[in-house]
Amino acid sequence: MSVLDTETFHRWIVETARLVEANADRLTSLDAAIGDADHGINLRRGFQAAVTALAEKPAATPGAVLATVGRALISKTGGASGPLYGTGFRHASKSLGEAAEVSELQLGAALAAAVAGIRQLGAAAEGDKTMVDAWTPAVAAYQSTVDGGGALAEATRAAADAAEGGLRSTVELQARKGRASYLGPRSVGHEDPGAASTVLLLRALATVTAET
């Protein structure tokens, strides 16, 4: 059994911020097609704020890292993605509690809690062409890998791959939530920007846990 420490969670956020920065223009272009062209701009601001907050006041536990990130995202991101990702991190933080180290089972529970929080706040379900379409298969893939006796690194990689599959599935979907829903049938044929940023977040998790 592997365990993740506070430092790994910190690196997860730094790596996510790096990926968001590198992909900010792509996220904004995806948003320009079916939204209002600011997803990359907002998320870059939010994750930069999260990294700064962690640097200014180092967190003592994995749960504290995620709580700080959640607060920073809610305070600095704006748009719908700030409250949604921020709530996801806060729910994950509550799920981890005060634990100093996190097992693959605890991480699975935290990811499930994050998705539950996001689904509840956004009132979105699978098939609505939102970040939920990337999150839901990712959490399922993580869980089935762990249930099948897979290692933590395998499970996080399976989650990131499944999120990518979920992202691809959003191309054919007509948006039913968020700003893309205003386009009706014209929202079909584009990747959902929120699902795209979810892939980055889970890819970053797979990267920092690859060595565990």
Partner: peptide, 11 residues
């Protein structure tokens, strides 16, 4: 006022 075309934040 939020950023351009971006909702304000709760704070």
């Amino acid at each position: 006022p939020g950023e351009v075309f971006t909702s304000p934040v709760p704070d």
